[in-house]
């Protein structure tokens, strides 16, 4: 038995299976997952790891385990998508821990959520004074959402009755030295126009550009491969191994 080739083949199976199964499971991002989802992910990953390298055991049981867990997660996703009550039952729901500036201590006890946890999460949000908080909600994934009191909210152009210009999102015209023709055509711009813009800024070739983005006002942001900075700031204090 050639252990190396067996592990390689089994790893390809585990990798491919995991890739396909996770595509079936959809686009729920890591930031949205609950504690249970996290454990599900670990269990599925652990089965894939065993499928890959545990050659003392047949690959098939691990694959069936992987398949079964994926189907169960898929079923749970479908059920919680369809029925809100099921979603609340399985995933829980957001809980208000500060209401009208007052800490809901009974609710926090139920959640086994300490005041130090609350303070820590508020600090992560840039809030160091509890007085500033009007509402704080612990979301399903354990993250906290905060609504500050009106006095502490930042001033917006609307508050000052200022006119603001629409920004929209930028569109990539050159990505990693390659022209994105599709985007150029969608914006009804020509390659000649782009070359002219590049020349105005001292660039001669598209392949010299790392990234070029055009915003909704037609302003170009260009970053070339060769940085012109003579003395870049080095923020590390690690000078390498001597």
């Amino acid at each position: 038995m050639n252990e190396t080739s067996v592990v390689i083949v089994r790893s390809i199976i585990a990798f491919g299976t995991l890739l396909i199964f996770t595509r079936f499971l959809g686009k729920q991002t890591v930031s949205q997952i609950t504690f249970f989802d996290y454990i599900l992910g670990i269990s599925i990953g652990s089965m894939a790891a065993n499928l890959s390298a545990d050659i003392a055991t047949d690959a098939w049981p691990y694959w069936v385990g992987l398949f079964t867990w994926t189907v169960l997660v898929l079923c749970l996703q479908k059920v919680t998508m369809k029925w809100r009550q099921a979603s609340i039952y399985f995933d829980g729901e957001p809980v208000i821990v500060i209401m009208d500036g007052e800490i809901m201590d009974e609710v926090m006890k139920k959640l086994r959520y300490r005041i130090s946890d609350l303070q820590e999460q508020l600090r992560e949000k840039g809030i160091f004074d509890l007085k500033e908080v009007d509402y704080a909600i612990v979301e399903k994934d354990g993250q906290i959402s905060v609504l500050k009191k009106a006095d502490y909210l930042p001033v917006t152009p609307r508050d000052l009755q200022l006119k603001s210009t629409y920004k929209g999102i930028g569109t990539e015209l050159i990505y990693d030295g390659v022209l994105v023709r599709n985007n150029l055509h969608q914006l009804q711009k020509s390659e000649e126009w782009l070359m002219k813009e590049l020349k105005n800024r001292g660039y001669t070739k598209i392949s010299d550009i790392f990234l070029a983005i055009i915003d909704s006002n037609g302003m170009l942001f260009i970053d070339a491969y060769h940085d012109k900075m003579k003395n870049p700031v080095d923020i590390t204090d690690f000078k390498g191994l001597k």
Binding site: M1, E3, S5, V9, T57, D58, A59
Partner: peptide
Amino acid sequence: QFSVEKNEL
């Protein structure tokens, strides 16, 4: 070898 247990072999 890819479909059986190493211990069986």
